[in-house]
Amino acid sequence: MPRSTLHIFFSTGCWMVLAFLVLPILVVIPVSFTDTAFIGLPRDGLSLQHYETFLRSPKWLQACLTSMWIGVLVAGISTILGTLFCIGVWFLSDRAATIARWVMIVPILVPPVVQSLGFYKFWVVLGLIDTHVGVILAHTLLALPYVTISVFAALTNLDRRIPQAARNLGASLPMTILTVIMPSIRPGMIAGALFAFTVSFDEIVGVLFLTVRRVETLPKVIWDGIQESIDPVIAAVATILVAITLFVTVFGLRGRKI
C-alpha cells in the first residue's frame, strides 16, 4: 500500500522529534572520552582520563554512595507508607478518601523552589538542616505522590471481591493485605519504588536549600561542577548515568507490552 502524504508527514516529523529528544543527551558520550582538559570533542585520540579522575576522586565516589543509600532508603520508606495509604483509601473509596489522595499529590504541583523554602524554614526549627535525616524526610515527601499514583493505579485493577472473600474466610486485615492484596499490586509497588528512587537520586533544588557541606549528594556535586567550571569529569559521570538509564529502560520495556 502506498503511504499517504499524512503518513509520511507524521512519520518523518516523529523521527525528527525523537532525534531531538535523544541525540542531545548522547553528546555527553564523545565528550567524556576527550583527551583535552576542557569540554569538547576528542582531538588526537580517545582517552579514559576523566573516568580515571572520577574513580580516583573521593568527593565524587562519596557523593555517588550517599545518593545511592539515601535513594534506597527513600524508596523503601515511601513505598511502604504509600502502599498502606493507598490500600486504606482504596477500601474507603469515599469523598474524604479522594481528598486525601489529592493531598498526597500536592508536591507535584508546588514549584520546587517554593517547597524548598518551606522545608528550609521548618527544618531550621527542627534542627534538620545539613543532616541526612533532613534530606531523607524531604525526599520521602517528594516521592510519595509518585508512589501513591502508581500503587493506586494497580489497585484499581484489583477486584474488590477478592480481599472481601479472604476476610469472609476469616483472614485478618493485616493478613489479607500481606497475602492477598500486596502480591497482586506488586508491579505497581515496584514501579512506585523505582520512581521514588529516581526522584531522590535526581533531586537538586531541595538539597541546595537544605544542605551546606556535611551532606553532599551526586546532583549537588554535578551542580557545583557546572557552576564553577565545566570539567569533562561531569561528562564522564553523565555518560555513566545515561548508560544506566538506557540499560534500565531497555530492560524495563522488554517485559512490557505497549
Binding site: 542531545p24 543527551i25 553528546v27 535526581d202 546532583p219 553523565a238 545515561v242
Partner: peptide, 11 residues
C-alpha cells in the same frame, strides 16, 4: 528517565 541536571549539562 535521564536526570534533568544531566540533560541541562548536555545542552
Amino acid at each position: 528517565w535521564v536526570s534533568v541536571l544531566v540533560r541541562s549539562f548536555a545542552w
